[in-house]
Design a binder for these strands. Structure first.
Lengths: 207, 207
DNA sequence: CCCCTTTCTGTACGTTTGTACATCAATTGA
DNA sequence: TCAATTGATGTACAAACGTACAGAAAGGGG
């Protein structure tokens, strides 16, 4: 009942330092996604990874170091997703609308969303981990900047981060059309930069 | 050295159930902002609030219940900020650009930013607290929808959430001009809804 | 085959946790 | 003034924690 599926681990007792370490990090990353960085304990990791308690202390000087490795693993996963983004933007006939399906595939993946929010939370509350959390944002801006003005690239990245929050709090994902429309609006603004009064909708003044 | 400033508390021993409960919740909210929801312990709350350990268990059936009360307190604070938003949007000569200073004042307040990110994180990982975390977003959309089409209101709220993440991870806040520009772009898109190929910048194809 | 090195395992210990509860102090109504 | 009551306090305890470490077991070289 309280048993959780074992992640990966080599057979018990069998020697396999690298495999074991990998299994421990994978289990830790999983637990962090499920319960946040603070929910990590040596014993839970051991149970999930299918290794002994001692093994979880052998490869890492402290629990904090294990946590750090697990977070780096999560960053590596999102890095892989960004490689796909780079592929998309490098297409000859690329348009901003092409980003939408990619963004949406990200938003509908609870694991990805959770990982991102946890990294943000970790980075915001602990300056030590800020660089880790910022990697997604910085790389995304860098990639998008090859096709958009840097400030437009940043605006798009900010919007996507906001959409990540939306995804984390809502069951209904954003429609693809909506994402396309918003990304295009940010990437190709009507008046590229002004503060003059703008025409606006008027949905009826409050009573 | 390890002493932390006391929050509010009534004099030790003096009877004041409501004041004491208030001080406990305030201390808990403070600790949550500083170290996340998981860092909350009865003893830390007692020290910060300047009350005895027993008092922290007296008014709440469990630590989880205390945590819940503290989170509700944080939501109440952001609710107050949203009242200000409602004032702004109700002005006769309101334009979207008027939102920017308000948004920015939010972003440069570390406490507000941290509170929001913590609520999001709590809501994303625990369905029980999702409604709590969603209150900011839902109310913001509702308020903005009096002046913008609902889907534009939502886009703006998503962007602001993204800007909150940006603020949590960067020391340099977003320029007011940038915020104005992005909000206007989202509120008044060039082509209100289309997926046809758009003219685009070309910052030089990758080598 | 056996031995030596490296890896793995489980137990143990001191700390900190949430929570229960007995004791004490403050307030109130007579 | 003086019980009686309600609120506040500190101690106690089982459970879970991070970590250290001694011993068992596996794999490879002789």
């Amino acid at each position: 009942m309280t048993e959780q599926p074992v992640i990966d681990a080599p057979a018990p007792g069998r020697r396999d330092p690298e495999g074991r370490k990998r299994a421990i990090i994978a289990a830790a990353a999983e637990l962090i996604i499920e319960g946040g960085t603070a929910s990590l304990t040596h014993r839970r990791v051991a149970a999930r990874a299918g290794v002994s308690l001692g093994s979880t202390t052998q490869y890492f000087a402290s629990l904090d170091e294990l946590r750090e490795s697990a977070l780096e693993q999560l960053v590596a996963e999102t890095d892989a997703a960004l490689d796909l983004l780079a592929e998309i933007t490098s297409a000859d006939d690329f348009t901003v609308a092409d980003l939408a399906p990619f963004v949406r595939s990200w938003l509908v993946d609870p694991r990805q969303v959770q990982a991102d929010l946890i990294l943000v939370s970790a980075g915001a509350s602990d300056p030590t981990r800020r660089a880790l959390a910022r990697r997604w944002f910085d790389r995304a801006v860098a990639i998008l900047s090859e096709r958009l003005p840097p400030d437009r690239a940043r605006a798009v990245a900010i919007y996507v981060d906001g959409a990540m929050i939306h995804a984390g709090l809502h069951d209904e994902p954003l429609d693809l059309d909506v994402i396309v429309g918003d990304l295009e609006a940010l990437a190709h603004p009507a008046r590229p930069r002004s503060t003059e009064p703008a025409p606006q909708h008027q949905n009826g003044p409050r009573s």
